[in-house]
Design a binder for these strands. Structure first.
Lengths: 167, 167
DNA sequence: TTGTTTTGTAGTTTCGAATAACAATTATGG
DNA sequence: CCATAATTGTTATTCGAAACTACAAAACAA
């Protein structure tokens, strides 16, 4: 039942502007449209919504996907390193990884040199899910490329990289 | 305590790459560096962290600031409209606005034509806080401009705008 | 008038993230 | 060698932002 009425999620912000329906419909975001932080946030939410929708068949959240990608890229890494690479606290990574382990997508293998830490690996099932997810992701990236136009991706990644530099 | 050791928040991701310290330090984010969604998220978190730090003297969150801006831009708007413009659910806007009202920064004035709705306004104190916050924001935007380089802001806002378009 | 829509609310839940505290293990300095 | 410090994984708690359901009051439409 909440079809086109309650689509508040970011849909409201781009109404108005052109046709003034005379009867006080939506208002404009005004000065916010020029603020990097605000526009950045709205874009990020929009993209993540798409990612989540694309991954729905896998029941995989963006954060979980990023862990699978990293494990595929650096198998045997320990929790601290993966967490640090993703900018996640060690404590929060535990819960995140627990879920992947419970689903049988990844496993903790006791590290040989250090009895404190684990070496993390994808399971066979995890490899499969990662492959499927990556395929879906690639499709999505292509859709984004269409939106961004020629050269858009490169320019955007470069600019975002500059913003992400801390300091 | 927890000074430069636990700066996991996004700091970890850009280590390595150049100097291989031989002893398994941080790992790279690998394929994630080419995914719009991931880079977008990291950049957004970095920028928001700065905004929050800049607003610390005002104890003002980004979402609250956006409400003040909109009220300064469209005084007398009703809750539904402001919420829709910001892409926030009506229900969640209530809590958000409650806090601003309790702090004496904004007020609900009974709308003349509709006994269901309120006309929202900034208080004098709210105007002051908005002015100060906007000043701080402008400074921050200038810092971002330095990071982005000449023409960077315009290019970035355009690209982000394309991503934020739903559909 | 009767039924529908709009508006503001309350309550609950989820997700990502921060933080503090802790046990086991490893590393280090005297 | 041993006392002390640092690392690693963990639990538990808290928070902000957001989604969702369900409601009552008021306005609107047929």
């Amino acid at each position: 039942m909440s079809s086109n009425v309650d689509k508040t999620t970011a849909a409201g912000a781009m109404a108005a502007a052109t046709a003034k329906d005379a009867r006080s419909p939506a208002i404009e975001i005004g000065p916010l449209a020029g603020m990097i932080g605000y526009v950045l946030r709205r874009a990020q939410l929009a993209v993540f919504d798409d990612v989540i929708a694309n991954f729905s068949e896998l029941d995989l959240r963006p954060a979980e996907y990023s862990v699978l990608v990293l494990l595929g890229h650096a198998p045997g890494a320990k929790q601290s390193d993966v967490a640090a690479a993703l900018g996640i606290q060690r404590a929060n990574f535990v819960v995140l990884f627990d879920r992947l382990e419970r689903r049988g997508l990844a496993r903790r293998s006791s590290a040989p040199n250090d009895r404190r830490s684990y070496a993390l690996y994808l399971t066979d099932e995890g490899e499969k899910v990662l492959a499927r997810a990556t395929s879906l992701e690639s499709q999505h990236e292509r859709v984004l490329d269409e939106k961004l136009g020629p050269g858009g991706r490169e320019r955007l990644l470069e600019l975002l990289g500059k913003l992400a530099e801390r300091g």
